[in-house]
Simulated assay, not measured.
Amino acid sequence: MIGIVGIATIFVMVFGGYLAAGGKMGIIIKSLPFEMMMIGGAAVGAFLISNDMGGVKHTIKDIGKVFKGPKWKPDDYRDLLCLLFALIRIQKANPVEVEQHIEDPENSAIFNKYPKILGDKEAVNLISDTMRSASMNYDDPHQVEEVLEKRIEANMHHALHSSHALQAIADGLPALGIVAAVLGVIKTMASIDQPPEVLGTLIGGALVGTFLGVFLAYGFFGPFAGKVKSVVEEDGHFYQLIREVLVANLHNHAAAICIEVGRQNTPSHFRPGFSELEEALKSVKQDAA
């Protein structure tokens, strides 16, 4: 919602200020389709050249994050801590029993209590792979932490591709606007014998290209790139939380301590309160009983 409000604010402030200063929309409206075709078409072409089809689809999909915001909400962090608590308790009590949950999460009664987490393959694989490694005696906390960190960094690098692609477009749009403006000047020079009012209209139309390139770059694509990056980094905390809890588990801390380590490392605006989490964990214990 706030993204739509931001876009509306940009249009109202820019064009409202222009009209309030006595500007006329006629020349902009007349030139806009042709300038947009040149600038927008060149930007799309450059985007296609610099990305493969997977990157193109990824970027188009991620534009929705500007309006949807982070995937993971505060309740999801609480649910994740409850899920990890249940798995760690089982692993400590009966290492063999936990295997049925991490080997087949789709049919796990524990995972199915949290369908949103179950629907995220990376979160499920991160949990399952790490707990499976521990059962195979690959349980050096420092080595596992390093492996998890590299894996999360690699996933983050991939997830930020959309932000980089959008920023590249934003960086190129002002130059493409100049290209369109130069073409408009060339067109104007071909009509140099026309009266001043005609030349003024032609020059104004040419300058629309410069305006449009800068307007799209700093009013839309730049902010879109920044927002996508912000959302991806926010969602990254979810996977960092998995790492913190599972590494704490490898240090042989009690399940409750592992969960508290995770809670303390959760960003403050997502962190569940101690009492709230305690109530949720009591429910987990009762279900297990």
Rank of each mutant, 00 (worst) to 15 (best):
G226W: 12
H157T: 13
E103Q: 07
V147K: 12
E122S: 04
G40W: 02
Q194P: 01
R151G: 04
K30H: 01
V231S: 10
N137F: 13
V147R: 10
A248S: 13
A8N: 07
V14P: 12
V14C: 11
Q264I: 15
Q194G: 05
Y239Q: 01
A254F: 11
H101Y: 07
V12E: 08
I27K: 15
S230N: 09
T201Q: 11
P141A: 05
D235S: 06
N125F: 09
N94R: 04
V66H: 10
N51L: 09
K57A: 12
I10A: 10
N252Q: 09
L166K: 04
L281P: 04
A175G: 07
N137V: 12
I203L: 15
E106F: 00
T210M: 08
I169R: 10
A280K: 08
D140I: 02
Y239P: 05
E278Q: 09
K57T: 11
V179A: 12
L277K: 00
L87F: 08
E279Y: 13
L87K: 09
K227A: 11
L32M: 14
S31G: 11
S162H: 13
I29F: 13
F85Q: 03
D287S: 13
V198K: 11
G3C: 04
V214I: 15
I169C: 09
L32F: 15
A86N: 05
F67Q: 08
G23V: 11
A109P: 00
Q91W: 02
M25H: 01
N249A: 03
K282V: 05
Y138G: 00
V14G: 12
A165M: 13
M36F: 15
S50V: 00
E234R: 08
A248D: 04
R78A: 04
I88T: 10
Q194I: 02
D104Q: 03
D193Q: 13
G213F: 10
A159Q: 10
S283Q: 15
G177V: 02
G204R: 13
H158W: 13
K92E: 07
A46P: 00
S162T: 12
H58M: 14
V14L: 14
I4E: 11
S283W: 08
H161E: 04
I88H: 08
T266D: 05
I2T: 15
N265L: 06
A43I: 06
I117H: 06
K65L: 13
A225L: 07
T210P: 04
A93P: 03
D235I: 07
L160W: 09
S283I: 15
F220P: 13
P196L: 06
A190Q: 15
G177T: 03
D235F: 09
G26W: 11
F221Y: 14
V228K: 03
M38Q: 06
S275W: 00
V124M: 04
V5C: 06
S133L: 15
G205H: 08
D235R: 05
H142V: 12
V231G: 09
D120C: 04
G262E: 06
I29C: 05
A165K: 11
D76I: 09
P141W: 01
K187Q: 14
M25S: 12
T59M: 02
C258Q: 08
L84G: 09
S162D: 12
I49D: 08
P105D: 06
F47M: 11
I169V: 12
A154W: 07
G40C: 02
I4K: 14
H157N: 11
G273L: 04
A159W: 01
I102T: 09
L246V: 08
L19D: 00
F224D: 13
H157W: 03
